[in-house]
Nucleic acid binder design. Structure first.
Lengths: 136, 136
DNA sequence: GTTCCTGCAAAAGCTTTGCAGAAGA
DNA sequence: TCTTCTGCAAAGCTTTTGCAGGAAC
């Protein structure tokens, strides 16, 4: 899976998807801020640079990336939707104190195979919650 | 962790929490329908029995159970919040075809410890998505 | 009598939809 | 020219809050 900025742009071009200024900025933001931002966060940060930017465009862009399999949703908390541009398998740890989300490596192959014989598994997510070292 | 109906009632009594008819019915529903229902589902099913029941009461009851650590949220999908009365550690598999959520055993102890040294882990969730055998 | 619970109505918050104008091919 | 993209405004949903009446202790 492509995780470099240039590679992502090439991937979109290959699929005949226009790379507008707004889309470029959203993708750039996701690449530079792998802290799994919410739409609100992306919006308020990018608005400084693009005053006319609307949330609709961010929603549109994120939807497009997810449809293309280039981003994924993180629903570690039920009242906030976050986004993750990195696709390679990893788990997410959310600090309940500061709200920061950390990545960590997970051996997905060793996970829950006994009970799921006959199931077609398309997607695996591991979510942990607790307190991060900085807050402890 | 207590998973029997009587045990749960006793647990609430011990904590001086009133067990009203509405609360009893919601708990009973969660015990009998471990398919991880949404609020909408609980509401429409229980309304047949309790015509005056309001969603607010269901939200209140679920919030109380979660605050007491007797239920947990499942946020496998970002646009629907589901609830789970069984607390013992298990993973959740959601069928993308029929929407059914299945439980499966997970060896949580073997999960992602290398990267998380110094983190205080309070909660672990494993979410899989795919197609269940019935839909395949 | 005091505290807690229920449930209606309203508010809040996030996401989607409709649509007109702009930009790009 | 034709298609696609942007962004405002409105709509749609789920969840929360305020509050008055009622039940439990």
């Amino acid at each position: 899976m492509e995780t470099s900025f240039e590679g992502l742009k090439a991937e979109l071009k290959k699929r005949n998807i226009q790379i507008s200024y707004q889309r470029l900025k959203v993708i750039e933001y996701l690449m530079n801020n792998q802290c799994h931002p919410t739409v609100e966060r992306i919006f308020s940060d990018l608005q400084k640079e693009i005053p006319t930017l609307s949330k609709t465009t961010i929603y549109n862009t994120l939807k497009m990336l997810i449809d293309e399999g280039l981003a994924r949703l993180i629903t570690i908390e039920d009242n906030e939707t976050r986004y993750d541009i990195v696709i390679e398998n990893h788990g997410h740890f959310k600090c309940e104190s500061c709200g920061q989300i950390y990545n960590f490596d997970v051996d997905f192959d060793s996970l829950g195979c006994d009970d799921l014989e006959g199931f077609k598994i398309l997607d695996k997510d591991v979510y942990f919650k607790g307190i991060c070292p900085r807050c402890l």
